[in-house]
Computed example of a mutant assay.
Amino acid sequence: MPLTDDADLDRLLDAETIAVIGCSTTPGKAAHDIPAYLQQQGYRVIPVNPFADEILGEHAYDALADVEEDVDIVNVFRPSEEVPEILDAVRERHAARGDATAAWLQLGISHDDAATAAESDGIEVVQDRCMKVEHRRLRG
């Protein structure tokens, strides 16, 4: 079951490093402004976007598998139909490295079957929730 309990969401917000799949170079887009907000709150934001070299002053990686740093949460700004492939990459990374213990699918993004499969491999999944909204609500 995807995480919905406030205590669980708040616990996930203790993360330090967030890889953002679909991070945008365009200010004004949620996929840019929300990672920028998270960065301003002290999180290390690692952009994953094969069409950019740098976003928010950080090197942008082509794929999650290319990220060298340990990742706590994989934050997803891609359409729901891409979620199975993305969560497969999270599962592979988690199995190989032991990091990427959570996936956070932004508002409007969900895929129950892929989330269930990821959870069976020990990955906590949040679906259809904005990380910025939840951070503001829970951390004020």
Rank of each mutant, 00 (worst) to 15 (best):
F77D: 00
R97T: 15
E82A: 14
N75G: 01
I55L: 02
D88S: 13
F77R: 01
R93D: 01
V71P: 14
H111N: 11
D88Y: 08
L107T: 01
V76F: 03
N75Q: 09
G122T: 04
R91K: 12
G98F: 12
E68G: 12
L56H: 03
A89R: 14
Y61P: 00
S120E: 13
D113A: 09
I123C: 08
A95I: 11
L107Y: 15
D121C: 05
S110K: 11
N75L: 00
E69W: 11
H59T: 01
G122M: 10
A100L: 08
A115M: 07
H59A: 10
V126I: 01
L105Y: 06
I55N: 02
Y61F: 08
N75D: 15
E119P: 03
L105P: 04
V67R: 09
Q106G: 03
H111P: 09
R91P: 08
A102L: 04
V90S: 12
D128L: 02
A103G: 05
V126W: 10
E58Q: 08
A103Y: 05
E92S: 14
I86F: 09
H111C: 12
F77A: 02
R129G: 06
A100K: 02
P84L: 11
A117L: 09
R93C: 07
S80W: 08
V125T: 07
D62I: 05
D128S: 04
A100G: 10
G108W: 05
E124M: 10
V67Q: 06
